[in-house]
Write a protein that binds this DNA or RNA. Structure first.
Lengths: 66, 66
DNA sequence: TTGGTATGTCAACTTAACTTTACATATCCA
DNA sequence: TGGATATGTAAAGTTAAGTTGACATACCAA
């Protein structure tokens, strides 16, 4: 699964720590999601999409291997 | 987090086992998600939304407690 | 050059997702 | 009545998500 978190953060001028605070997770969790080490829960995906005011499908997209 | 899986299944005339097969998980996993015991991964949410041809946000919605 | 901010990553830990196996119940139909 | 299908749930196990704490690096501004 790919994600646009890094780009969205840049557009909204948020650091990983800022974003983590917004949705109530640790900075490392955001980093791990961004770098593809973790697949977030649906609750986190919904909250992240909400922060950026975008659809979940826009921020996260399935890949062949999923 | 609430979800519309049961309704969507009914509209698409799919059993829990059918849906499980479609997205490659066990029947119990579908049941557990439907009854709110598990929060699915974002990959599962995207696949479920894909099966029903609906937005993730339409199928899964955040609640106060999330 | 030093201090603050941002990012990447690792280790150890806890909790939750997901699996298989299994059993119970309800409905429906031949 | 009996068998097939659908659903709910429990137990035990594995894997992955998410935590805290820590350290390294890079960049930028004072």
């Amino acid at each position: 699964m790919k994600n646009r978190l890094k780009v969205e953060r840049a557009e909204h001028n948020l650091s990983q720590a800022d974003l983590a605070d917004r949705i109530g997770v640790s900075r490392q969790t955001i980093n791990s999601i961004e770098t593809g080490r973790y697949v977030p829960s649906t609750i986190l995906a919904l909250k992240l999409a909400q922060v950026f005011n975008k659809a979940v499908e826009y921020i996260f997209t399935l890949e062949e291997t999923d």
